[in-house]
Simulated assay, not measured.
Amino acid sequence: MELTLTRVYHPQGTNGIITLSGVKICESIELPWRKNATSISCIPEGRYPLKARTSQKYSQHIEIIAVPGRSYILIHPANYALTELRGCIAPVLKATTPGKGVFSRKALDKLMNLCTPVWNENKHVHLIIKS
């Protein structure tokens, strides 16, 4: 399965739309593009494998694998990129302004509901990030 994140870059944050086969799943917020600098930039455009991850802080969420020069890049709930993200992607039901959105946990649940059955069948899920 391949999800696509189509981004729009702004100085205050990066917004996007996550789709599956052209159908909108949710929107997204991220940090602005700052040349992939650790903890202050969104990650580079590209194609990345995804895997399920669980932590005490975020419960069930998604890890983005093989990001150049970065580690532990996650898809997790957040509503304000500049204070809640360190290079990760936050799904939101609606982006309100650059780098801000609402109903992030609900958006992550939608993504998890799509991806989990695929992972349970030992199949791959990828994210294509483009602008």
Results as ranks from 00 to 15, higher is better:
residue 78 A to W: 13
residue 1 M to D: 01
residue 5 L to V: 03
residue 18 I to H: 08
residue 11 P to H: 11
residue 115 C to D: 00
residue 125 V to A: 01
residue 113 N to A: 11
residue 24 K to Q: 14
residue 10 H to Y: 15
residue 28 S to R: 05
residue 91 P to S: 02
residue 90 A to E: 04
residue 84 E to H: 05
residue 21 S to F: 12
residue 35 K to G: 06
residue 121 E to K: 15
residue 2 E to F: 12
residue 68 P to T: 06
residue 59 S to Q: 08
residue 46 G to T: 02
residue 86 R to K: 14
residue 67 V to T: 01
residue 26 C to P: 02
residue 81 A to M: 09
residue 53 R to K: 11
residue 21 S to K: 15
residue 99 G to Q: 11
residue 30 E to M: 07
residue 43 I to T: 00
residue 17 I to H: 05
residue 19 T to A: 07
residue 107 A to I: 04
residue 60 Q to H: 07
residue 73 I to G: 04
residue 47 R to I: 15
residue 33 W to V: 04
residue 78 A to C: 10
residue 35 K to C: 07
residue 65 I to S: 10
residue 124 H to Y: 04
residue 87 G to M: 12
residue 98 P to A: 11
residue 15 N to A: 10
residue 117 P to T: 02
residue 92 V to E: 02
residue 69 G to V: 10
residue 42 C to T: 11
residue 10 H to N: 15
residue 97 T to Y: 15
residue 65 I to L: 15
residue 100 K to N: 03
residue 24 K to N: 15
residue 8 V to Y: 09
residue 26 C to E: 10
residue 6 T to C: 08
residue 56 Q to A: 06
residue 32 P to Y: 08
residue 91 P to V: 07
residue 2 E to G: 02
residue 123 K to G: 00
residue 79 N to P: 06
residue 29 I to Q: 13
residue 27 E to I: 10
residue 88 C to R: 06
residue 65 I to A: 03
residue 101 G to K: 01
residue 125 V to S: 01
residue 124 H to A: 05
residue 81 A to F: 13
residue 108 L to R: 01
residue 31 L to S: 09
residue 61 H to K: 05
residue 86 R to T: 04
residue 38 T to V: 15
residue 80 Y to T: 06
residue 26 C to K: 04
residue 4 T to M: 12
residue 8 V to S: 13
residue 68 P to V: 00
residue 22 G to T: 09
residue 34 R to W: 14
residue 115 C to G: 00
residue 41 S to Q: 08
residue 45 E to G: 03
residue 22 G to S: 14
residue 66 A to E: 13
residue 10 H to R: 08
residue 102 V to K: 13
residue 113 N to Q: 14
residue 67 V to R: 00
residue 126 H to R: 03
residue 13 G to L: 06
residue 74 L to S: 06
residue 39 S to I: 05
residue 43 I to R: 02
residue 38 T to H: 05
residue 122 N to W: 10
residue 26 C to M: 14
residue 41 S to L: 13
residue 128 I to W: 05
residue 106 K to E: 13
residue 4 T to D: 12
residue 16 G to T: 04
residue 73 I to S: 07
residue 11 P to K: 08
residue 50 L to F: 00
residue 97 T to K: 15
residue 51 K to H: 03
